[in-house]
Design a protein around this nucleic acid. Structure first.
Lengths: 229, 229
DNA sequence: GGTTAGCAGATCGTTCAACAATCCTACGGT
DNA sequence: ACCGTAGGATTGTTGAACGATCTGCTAACC
């Protein structure tokens, strides 16, 4: 996406939400977050304050508040006196991300009940629909939703928030990887397998599958990240 | 602590760090955070912008950036057009906090190794020293450090950050409870028992002790929170 | 030739003053 | 007692200004 396209997209996003959501800073942050998630701003890109003042239709102070919001979500990095950069994951980040996922998701899956399994299988269905439409980023999003559904089994607001944070960071990594189809598609059937196992009563079998899943995904992402840094 | 005392304390905190730490907003946030932790601002208190402009020696915009920082740490609550309030935990918050702690700490303790045990026992020693000096809030801080040490066993930056967040929120709750000695002192020996068990090779015994510990602490805090709301 | 000092230019950090938007309270009508 | 409405207080947002800091370039120096 060119810089001009990104500016135009921002205008749309801002206009859409200006009076629906809360403060101007939140609206601006929402627009920027969406733009980053869509890939309009790529990891490592520098985001100059002045260049966004016009498109977002906010003042500099407000824009800086928006940056603070995104910085705390770890979507951008705020370097003092040097500006704001779209976050670029390191290999260490990827390792850490998966360490936390393993710890949380395995325990959560053990606690899951029937209502959780339906939420999980709905996410799988959504992913299959996206695959049929060749929407590979959609498949990735559906996969994330599947894992969020696992964590939701615990029923903790803070854990849900943490998982949202982790998936947002992982999505940043997706943009830096090559063929999205090759990366996302194969995990669809593995998700389905996990649902089958756990709803069939084989909880520990499902946990094992999930653990293998996470290890494989981690290895695959690490391969993409360790090669070029 | 009177309002005048709080203002004076803020001046000290600001002067101390003005040129040590980074931006003015961070310095202001640090000072406010410390003031809240010390109990100078109590949960539920409203924090009026104008009243802090002088003591903190920052402009309104910078102060508002500091508020954003604290809001993301969940130490204060930002209500649009109504101001900033020191966070007051609800019973649901306490339940959620302990749900997350149980999930994370039990798993972390299972993964702990000898180096982690020494860190844990150091925290216990620190707590005993505070108890001897009748510094009961210090005992509470040492207890939190003990649990942070458990989580640190995993070696995940994000998990450490999460645990820091959780302990900060819990400390907010401490201020709303009655006798700090009655609440903190008895957990000291239980922490020591956990260290003994795990370093003695009885990992699952230690995990059991930790689980009981967390359940008891949760019950005790809930009793204080459900009574008056 | 390579290294370092210093000089712009660009960008960020912070302040200030002003105005608009919103909320709270107290007053008065019913 | 209830309700709507002014008025004051506080927050939300803006725009311009100035100092501080980084970056890259030039030029002097070894």
């Amino acid at each position: 996406m060119s810089v001009e396209d990104a500016v135009g997209r921002l205008r749309d996003l801002v206009g859409l939400r200006r009076r629906v959501h809360g403060t101007a800073a939140e609206v601006a942050a929402d627009a920027l977050r969406e733009l980053i998630m869509e890939g309009g701003l790529r990891p490592g890109d520098r985001v100059v304050e002045e260049s966004l003042l016009g498109p977002l239709e906010v003042s500099r102070n407000t824009l800086r508040e928006a940056f603070r919001l995104l910085a705390h979500e770890k979507l951008v990095e705020h370097k003092v006196n040097r500006g704001v950069f779209v976050r670029a994951l390191t290999a260490d980040d990827v390792r850490d991300l998966f360490t936390v996922r393993v710890l949380i998701e395995l325990t959560a899956l053990r606690r899951s009940r029937e209502a959780d399994w339906t939420a999980m299988s709905q996410a799988v269905a959504k992913g299959k629909a996206c695959a049929k439409a060749h929407d590979w980023l959609g498949v990735g999003t559906a996969n994330m939703r599947f894992h969020k559904a696992i964590v939701a089994s615990v029923g903790s607001a803070r854990l849900d928030e943490l998982m949202g944070q982790l998936t947002a960071e992982l999505r940043l990594g997706f943009h830096e990887m090559g063929d999205p189809r090759a990366f996302h598609e194969k995990y669809l059937t593995r998700n389905a397998g996990i649902v089958d196992a756990v709803s069939g009563g084989d909880v520990e079998g499902a946990v094992g599958l999930l653990h293998e899943y996470l290890d494989d995904a981690k290895t695959e992402m690490l391969a993409a990240f360790s090669s070029d840094r």
